[in-house]
Simulated scan of single mutants.
Amino acid sequence: MPASRSSRLSATDRRQAILSAAAPIFARLGREGATTKEIARAAGVSEALLYRHFASKDALYAELETHCVAANAVGSRILAEAMPSTETLVTGVAVLVQAVFPGIGDRQSHEDTKRLVTASLLGDGQFAKAFLDRHVKPWIGVFERSFRAAQDAGDVEAGIHIGHAEIWFVHHLANTLHLISLPDITVVEYGITRDKLVENTVRFLLRGLGLRNAAIDRDYDPKKIKAIFASMDQETS
């Protein structure tokens, strides 16, 4: 009898397979409702083997925070060496909106992540805090420095001052749009395509941050943003 697919996996791949199986179960049932028995069955392993890789259900749950994120690598790559500027702020907002709504990478993984974060917010919030601290908070400083550079360049309307809260609103609006899109039914009919909704959201947020329309028109090119994501998809495929 041939060995099962599970038995042929390396230890690292098996660990990832268990995490992949666990994500939708935790997303659907929450940390308390999910069981290691169900997770093991979904992963095609025994509970004993699951416990060889994860000391407890809580340890498995905690590690999901770093497992379900393809978007973080994309954002880090784009912004890691970017100099503070109006263009960096515009590109950063566009990338963050795309990363959160409609998402980058595997769609199911992205949706599972959002459900995990939302379930955490309805509970003790620890998973959500760890996730946002790791994957969104690093962007805040980049945006703040770029906003100041945009002010120095004359690209911000007079009298506009923003802080942490306003920059976090970029994430919050994109996150709300994604949550509304999670059900199979159309919850809100916006009357435009998803691509147009993303573009309108980016422009709305940039205006909300105080950027002048001329600066937005100069530095925001939806086709350029799509090309960036397309080139990364080719590199990782």
Rank of each mutant, 00 (worst) to 15 (best):
S6Y: 13
S6Q: 14
L9R: 12
L9F: 05
A11Q: 13
Q16V: 10
Q16T: 11
A17Y: 00
I18V: 01
S20I: 06
A22K: 08
A23V: 01
P24V: 06
R28M: 07
G30H: 06
G33M: 04
G33I: 03
T35N: 03
T35D: 03
T35Q: 08
K37P: 00
A42L: 02
A43P: 03
S46A: 06
S46N: 00
E47M: 06
L49W: 09
L50W: 07
R52I: 04
H53P: 04
A55T: 14
K57H: 06
A62N: 12
E63L: 12
E65K: 15
V69Y: 02
A70L: 03
N72W: 09
A73S: 12
A82G: 02
E87L: 07
G92V: 05
V93G: 02
V95H: 13
Q98H: 10
Q98T: 09
A99Y: 06
A99V: 08
G105Q: 07
D106T: 13
R107F: 01
Q108C: 06
Q108M: 05
K114F: 14
R115L: 15
S120Q: 14
L121D: 08
L122R: 10
L122F: 09
K129W: 12
K129Y: 14
L132M: 13
V142L: 12
R145P: 00
A149C: 06
A150E: 05
A153G: 08
G154N: 01
D155L: 05
D155V: 02
V156L: 11
V156K: 14
I160T: 08
I162W: 07
I162D: 13
G163Y: 01
G163R: 00
H164S: 09
A165F: 09
E166R: 04
F169L: 11
H171S: 09
H171E: 14
N175L: 15
N175E: 10
T176W: 05
L177G: 01
L177K: 08
L177V: 03
H178T: 10
P183G: 04
V187N: 06
V188H: 06
Y190S: 13
Y190E: 13
I192S: 07
I192V: 15
R194D: 12
K196M: 09
L197R: 15
E199C: 04
N200G: 02
T201S: 04
V202A: 03
R203L: 01
L206Q: 06
R207P: 02
N213T: 11
N213P: 03
A215C: 03
D217C: 07
D217H: 08
D217E: 15
Y220R: 10
D221L: 04
D221W: 01
P222F: 05
K223A: 14
A230I: 07
M232E: 12
M232K: 07
Q234F: 10
T236V: 12
T236R: 12
